[in-house]
Design a protein around this nucleic acid. Structure first.
Lengths: 238, 238
DNA sequence: CGTCCCTTTGAGGGCCTTCAAACTGTGTGG
DNA sequence: CCACACAGTTTGAAGGCCCTCAAAGGGACG
């Protein structure tokens, strides 16, 4: 369930013809497994490949000149680390592996060619970008209006839903192999406050935390608390 | 300079053939001018049209169940209010006109057909979506790490650059026909604090405010203050 | 001239940050 | 096998940025 090829991933976003699939599968790609903390992308360098996460977690982050950091995206299997195909190939963020991670790197040049020639492939990339756009928009209300407590609740529900979708979470339990400092940079709050707030949510009986995992005890109550159903992007249909 | 058709707008994002342009120009659209405060979109209703702003300002916002509001996008001429083509047609946000505004509404069904059949048109929509994605990502560092002062500085520089690009700002001066409450909901701060912070920036000599307009006095100093050049999305090239 | 929307200013309080340090678990080398 | 380094978690105390509540002032409009 977690081993996507680019063709399979795009096939979920648009109806590809057999010819499209042949084109996509014909692209030579590089598969590589790297240990945790490996740098995958450097900001301000030219991207040669589209990096697709097959296994493990990666993060995309941006640094301010003074060292402050924001996390653009926490990528799980099935996600692209960064997609340069719709814009200049210069990487706008840095990225590194959070766990041991396996990635597939697809060369950009032939993909650009396919997008120019094959409408369904271009449409699939369009839909893919739209889904990432929707995901990012879903963070605006939490980031601008929610309290730390609510932001963290939203974070848990969102990650649980995303991981369930690729078969990496069940029984309301999901792995969380990342530090609280990173969660802080993702949600715009400080490491120390992430910790205090997490413990408060746990003390309130809404979640349980064990080593590297979180169990959501009362999903309905948490969803109602933050109106989660209203924040989830609509599924892609035609 | 501010009167875009959809075809012209897409043509800036990909190389369209004469045939593509004919297809796009062949789509019957509705042009409508509405007074300020007119509702343009309602969340949770089906979108039938792609709304392109030709003149005036519009805003896209989302409400939390308890009434808190976040502004997803401040749309200026050349922007789409919301693009449902890459996803389900259900509107995810509401939208209204901030000033008197002229919009062109392009029916969705024929556009979906074109995207499925014409690769360059699909590619242009992909690039368009990618540019909105990049714009949204550019707000993450301000929203999560910047102080209110820095966020407001970023807001001014960003809006100035966007308006210059469509010929609606010059001499470091741009129109700002929106309330401080709305700016607050865009930047995740309260109306009152927007006001205090704006006046502080003005007192510090960085900007001047006159009725409905802002002049950036020391653009270089402000850009350096927040590392603005590092936050601007890269231009679209092939 | 009154209403409405928006801006502006003041005072007080709370959420979150900042600084600091102790604690835990893991891997490494002597 | 222990000492040590290192990364991450946890807790405490103090302070500041921003929020909240409140109200006055200004401009547009009927």
């Amino acid at each position: 369930m977690t081993s996507f090829t680019l063709c399979e991933r795009l096939g979920r976003l648009a109806d590809l013809t057999a010819s499209d699939e042949k084109h996509l599968d014909g692209i030579e790609h590089i598969e590589r497994t790297v240990p945790a903390r490996t740098e995958i992308l450097d900001a301000h360098t030219e991207m040669q490949y589209l990096p697709l996460v097959v296994d493990g977690w990666t993060v995309q982050y941006q640094l301010a000149p003074d060292g402050r950091r924001t996390v653009h995206c926490i990528a799980i299997p099935g996600d692209v680390v960064d997609n340069p195909l719709g814009r200049a190939a210069m990487a706008t963020c840095s990225s590194q592996a959070l766990t041991e991670a396996t990635l597939r790197f697809y060369p950009i040049a032939p993909l650009r060619g396919l997008i120019r020639r094959e409408a369904r492939i271009a449409a699939a990339f369009f839909a893919w970008e739209a889904s990432y756009f929707a995901m990012l928009r879903g963070r605006l209300l939490p980031l601008t209006q929610f309290t730390a407590y609510e932001r963290l609740v939203h974070f848990c529900l969102d990650l649980l839903a995303r991981l369930e979708e690729v078969g990496l979470a069940e029984n309301d339990t999901f792995p969380l192999p990342i530090s609280q400092a990173l969660i802080g940079d993702y949600l715009g709050m400080h490491e120390v406050h992430v910790n205090r707030t997490f413990r408060r949510i746990e003390r309130d009986g809404y979640i349980e935390r064990t080593k590297g995992h979180v169990r959501v005890c009362d999903r309905d109550a948490l969803s109602a608390m933050i109106g989660f159903h209203m924040l989830v992007p609509a599924p892609i249909v035609d």
